[in-house]
């Protein structure tokens, strides 16, 4: 199929970017979206032009590195997948595809379609961990009985790959779904209780400091999340936060 691509090109963080038009022929339906971009880049390189820079790593929906806003939606029009799992069969011959980086003040563009998502790392570092003694007498986590439902919910929250689609989709560029998933995966388990109050306060404080927007419960994040992280996590974080803060 023949596609008309409108791709955001930006030399570096300081330079103003713009949409550049490309026409790409010979795209197959069983190609992934990133393979389609690979072909475009091969063409650009063969013509001596600068290839389009985009983030990618595992290309199997695990790492959360790929991060494209495709036709106005993070990871494109399909659901519960990352950009690398999006197949070109979702598009038709002659389609125009607009490809942009994830947009948020807290996700500054580094080059072309690559954004700096280290703000997520800083939120995680602010409290997304448990302190465990690993000096040789570590207690096996499975030694602590945990209700199946809690374990399942904690595991669901832990499937967040930190790709940033929630921020990209949210009209407010809010990071509540990401932060709440990281809070929830510990809040639901006994190992997470010891540092629970500090964790939620520190992570929310860092989230606000990074300049993310406020959650207005539109639910766009949940719809666009490649791992199907639920809004229940945001409600849980709100409860955890209010409980931790009001208790002082």
């Amino acid at each position: 199929m023949k596609l008309y691509l409108k791709i955001w090109r930006q030399k570096d963080a300081e330079t103003k970017g713009q949409i550049v038009d490309y026409t790409l022929d010979g795209v197959e339906g069983d190609m992934s979206f990133l393979e389609m971009l690979d072909i475009l880049n091969e063409e650009l390189v063969s013509k001596g032009e600068e290839p389009v820079e985009f983030d990618h790593d595992c290309r199997e929906g695990i790492c959360g590195t790929c991060s494209l806003q495709i036709n106005g939606e993070p990871h494109g029009p399909d659901r519960l997948i990352t950009t690398c799992q999006l197949h070109m069969r979702k598009f038709n011959d002659g389609d125009t595809i607009v490809i942009e980086p994830f947009r948020a003040k807290a996700f500054p563009v580094i080059k072309d379609l690559i954004v700096d998502r280290s703000s997520f790392d800083r939120i995680q570092q602010a409290g997304g961990f448990i302190s465990v003694n690993t000096s040789g007498n570590t207690v096996d986590a499975n030694a602590i009985p945990i209700p199946k439902e809690d374990a399942d919910k904690a595991m669901d929250a832990a499937t967040c790959i930190g790709c940033g689609a929630c921020v990209a989709a949210c009209k407010n560029a809010s990071a509540m779904l990401f932060t709440s998933a990281k809070v929830s995966q510990f809040a639901l388990l006994p190992q997470g209780q010891v540092e629970a109050a500090d964790r939620v306060q520190n992570m929310v404080r860092q989230m606000d400091l990074e300049g993310f927007g406020n959650c207005t419960n539109t639910g766009a994040c949940e719809v666009e999340c490649p791992k199907g992280i639920s809004l229940e996590n945001i409600a849980r974080m709100n409860r955890e936060y209010l409980s931790a803060t009001t208790k002082g």
Partner: peptide
Amino acid sequence: GLELQNKRARGISYVKYSGAANAPWVSRNM
């Protein structure tokens, strides 16, 4: 105040943003 803060949080606007694809109109236009 929250709306102003939320607008600032986006920074640069999308060229194409399909809000209707993932959230109802009422929730996006409070």
